[in-house]
Nucleic acid binder design. Structure first.
Lengths: 94, 94
DNA sequence: TCAACTGTAACCTACTGCGTTACGAATTAC
DNA sequence: GTAATTCGTAACGCAGTAGGTTACAGTTGA
């Protein structure tokens, strides 16, 4: 289990994509073909990256969709792991 | 992009976990602490593996939650990639 | 001052995860 | 043959999330 809370992928999008290109949230949303509200929610960690959104990001920024989706997976997993001890599950295998 | 449609994770659960251990769907669902219906839906590809479910699987079968979630991610991504051409997205970077 | 950008609230639709209950079909045990 | 078990799944409800539009308030820069 990872030690530290990983940043949500929206933070990465802003730091590694929007900021370096000097692109505004409004412009980026238009390019991605989504509403400004939806992008804002992602950037501020109030929404996750869906598989379709990962493909959109890869098209706009020339990255791999897989990397975006994996970041979301790692983020989601970390939070699920935080509740591991509250799950009552019986071991079926060694 | 992957060439062939990856199997849904439920198929893997059945082949690599349930079958080898000779565990019934009913028993496995009880061990996982979920309803038989929910496990059946996963096994037959009508539901995905949620982050919490990935942790449950790791607890019951002694595997890593990450591997289960990654399988789901790959599966979801493949289907999203199939619709890549239908997305109208403008390139923002080279 | 005015325009643009940003975050976000309100409201809507659609989908998904998960639960319970109940049914029919198939299998196994006696 | 009959009873019990297993399995898939339909029907229903609840909760959460992704996404859209519209609208408003705060900030910043020309």
């Amino acid at each position: 289990m990872r030690m530290h809370n990983p940043p949500h992928p929206g933070e990465i999008i802003r730091r590694l994509c929007l900021d370096p290109l000097g692109v505004s949230v409004t412009e980026a949303a238009q390019a991605l073909g989504i509403s400004r509200k939806t992008l804002s929610a992602i950037l501020n960690g109030r929404a996750g990256i869906s598989p379709e959104m990962a493909v959109r990001l890869s098209m706009a920024f020339g990255t791999s969709a897989e990397s975006w989706l994996n970041q979301q997976t790692q983020y989601d997993l970390w939070h699920a792991e935080q509740r591991r001890k509250q799950l009552r599950v019986a071991k079926l295998a060694v």
